[in-house]
Amino acid sequence: MSKKRIILIHNEETTRNWLQENLEKKGYEVTGLPDKEAQVRHEVVELMYEKLYDAIVVDESSESEPVDVLDEVRKHFPEANTGFVYMTPKPQPAPSYEQRLADQYKGIEYPPTPERVERYRNAGYEIYEDDTPVEEFLRVVEKVVTGKAEAPEA
């Protein structure tokens, strides 16, 4: 049986390498990509033309809009059974407009709102909150790749 293939899109190289290593220990073939806005959508499509992937994992901190990656894959490969995972910090209500204005020049970034996360869920992404243990990440990926989740370890 061939290895299941995953594309992992994450801006932070250290985190991307660590997640890739954990996925490879579980037996997956992983292609890690830094996100470079629209360019990553084209890279994903090029990789999919070479061989179909079983899952694509996109991090919230990515510059690309995760739904755009999903739409691009579905447009080019409607027959593919590729699953999608959206990695996000725990969603929180949006701060007030005044607070966002005050913080915009300080470089403060806010976690996504529950509405944004729900939009991705409705688009077909499985959601992983990245402040939980890596074992939970591996379970979410397993669920997406196989259609069933491993039982949590006791």
Rank of each mutant, 00 (worst) to 15 (best):
K51C: 04
N17E: 15
Y86P: 09
Y97G: 03
S2H: 09
R74T: 06
F137K: 05
N17V: 02
L19E: 09
R41V: 02
T132L: 10
E46K: 12
E142N: 09
Q104R: 15
F77S: 05
V30E: 00
L8C: 05
R139S: 04
V140T: 15
E43I: 02
H76S: 04
P133F: 01
T113Q: 09
D71T: 10
G27C: 06
R74M: 08
E13Q: 15
K25C: 03
E98T: 08
R74V: 06
L70P: 06
F84I: 01
I108Q: 12
F137T: 03
E65D: 15
T132W: 12
T31L: 15
I6P: 01
L52A: 10
V58I: 10
E109A: 14
W18V: 11
T14W: 11
Y105A: 12
E142H: 14
Y28G: 00
T132S: 07
T82V: 07
V134T: 13
M48C: 05
G107D: 10
E24V: 06
P34L: 03
P89L: 06
E43P: 00
K143E: 13
D130W: 08
A55Y: 11
I56M: 01
E65S: 08
K75E: 13
Y97M: 11
G32A: 12
Y125R: 05
P91W: 10
R100I: 15
P34F: 02
P111F: 06
K25V: 03
Q99W: 03
D54G: 03
A123Y: 07
E12C: 07
T88W: 07
T31F: 11
R139A: 02
K26M: 11
L47Q: 12
R41Y: 00
P133S: 01
Y125P: 02
E37D: 14
P95D: 04
A149S: 14
F137W: 06
E46M: 07
V140C: 10
R5Q: 12
N11Q: 14
T15S: 08
E129G: 01
P133D: 08
V144L: 05
V144K: 05
A149M: 10
R119V: 01
P112F: 03
E109K: 15
K51I: 04
T113I: 08
S62Q: 03
E21G: 09
Y53T: 00
D35I: 08
Y105K: 13
G32C: 05
D59W: 07
R139E: 02
Q104V: 13
E135I: 04
V57Y: 07
S2T: 09
P89M: 07
R121D: 05
V40H: 01
K148T: 06
G124P: 04
E135C: 04
A55L: 08
D131V: 08
V45Q: 01
P133E: 03
A38F: 09
D130Y: 09
E150R: 14
V140I: 14
E12Q: 14
V73C: 02
E24G: 03
E60W: 14
E60P: 00
D59C: 11
E60S: 06
G124D: 03
K148P: 00
D35Y: 06
Y125S: 04
E13N: 11
D103P: 09
E153K: 13
L33P: 08
I127N: 02
D103V: 06
T88I: 06
V144G: 07
T132I: 00
A55T: 10
W18N: 13
R41M: 05
D130Q: 13
K51E: 11
S62V: 05
V40A: 00
Q92L: 12
N81G: 07
E21T: 15
P95S: 05
